[in-house]
Design a protein around this nucleic acid. Structure first.
Lengths: 212, 212
DNA sequence: GGCTTCCTACCACCAAAGTGGTATTTACAT
DNA sequence: ATGTAAATACCACTTTGGTGGTAGGAAGCC
């Protein structure tokens, strides 16, 4: 462990903030370089402090932690943001991850968990509690997508739909599959009929669920 | 720990299969109720065995593990599928998660890791290696999307791109924006030029990141 | 004023996608 | 063996999409 992990803590509760600072400062490979009591002051001057990990509360007066991550991450993408909050609310979790946070810990945790979370995040991992990991993973399961994808369409049709989604032209699909363009055309026609759509983009949105 | 965790193992390599069975059977709270040497035999008869966790290899003759999960999960959503593979390939990972797997472990792991992964998955968690967790979390971050979306394209172009992504036809976009179809056409032309693509689907994939 | 950028609009042309049929072969199940 | 489903292929046709120009008006910048 050549370099120390340099940490910034953003947390409005003084007691928690000092507790966290104490815990992390006790580790030989860590150093708390600065603490902030709210998001606004963090945003103003965080760039003056070299750091590798920012531990961020969500609920704070002024800018909340998620907004802070969204604002700060693009300016310094190498810095890892670890959310530390009492909320196990899916909305917060996904907002935080979309903003660029790479870890999400609950506050009711032991000192050990906090320490190992910091190590994990600075080491290329994404510390999360078990429940949060499950929420995140479940968000990939595309519910009825699977149903559509597995029962309605034949395997050939699924392959072709995949390629449609990649943006390939019919003739490219035909070449890759070594079949005629007319056959591709027919498959696509059947796919659209089964999915009850009438264009490539509609089909993609229907099966691969649209986000945003 | 009232009930034992009932486990099915699907793995074509005999040695690995027996090793895993041995490891897990040694735990007091676990029981391996059945093993399969390939996906096809698993799909045929797995429903005859009561289980809570299925440990699934990906690379197998016949149906691969991801296809097995996709086929089996809808029939028994309560069962947790733990992928165990040598591949740390993002494509596989996301395909597996989309199919309904709730955990993804690498094979080069210790017995302890396997045991705790099984406990974690049956306990509502989603065991993943640190690297995989990071991949999953990163997939939420809307990285350069934001950059493209915010600097390259004008606000009008962004609006139109959004509608393109929804699958609307040019004339629908024109109607909604109360502009001419020819204008829409021109905006789209400019968008494609800026993004260096030449079709709707390519543009969508480029800006709204594609998974799968 | 002169410059650029953006939004608007029109034109002409060609490529690609989508519609809706028919038809043959293979393969699988009854 | 007979029926059904899937994959293949071809045809004729219409609509939509993509290319590449020109051009006017509005907003903003030197």
């Amino acid at each position: 462990m050549a370099k120390k992990i340099k940490i910034i803590i953003v947390e409005d509760d003084k007691e928690i903030r000092q507790l966290a600072e104490g815990i992390l400062s006790g580790e030989k490979d860590m150093e708390v370089v600065k603490t902030f009591a709210n998001g606004d002051s963090f945003l103003k001057s965080w760039e003056n402090y070299e750091c590798t990990v920012v531990i961020m509360d969500i609920n704070m007066p002024g800018k909340n932690g998620i907004e802070c991550v969204a604002a700060a991450k693009p300016k310094n993408p190498g810095v890892q943001f670890l959310i530390s909050t009492v909320f196990e609310n899916p909305q917060y979790i996904f907002q935080a991850l979309c903003s660029g946070a790479t870890g999400y810990m609950l506050k009711n945790n032991t000192a050990d968990k906090l320490i190992s979370a910091v190590r994990e995040i600075s080491n290329g991992g994404s510390p999360m509690s078990a429940n949060i990991a499950r929420l995140v993973v479940d968000s990939f399961a595309t519910k009825q997508t699977a149903a559509i994808h597995n029962e309605l369409l034949t395997s050939r049709e699924k392959e072709i739909l995949d390629m449609l989604a990649q943006g390939l032209m019919y003739k490219e699909i035909a070449a890759k599959k070594e079949i005629g363009v007319e056959t591709v055309r027919k498959h696509v026609y059947n796919i659209y009929e089964k999915l009850q759509v009438s264009s490539r983009t509609e089909a993609i949105n229907k099966v691969y669920g649209k986000q945003v």
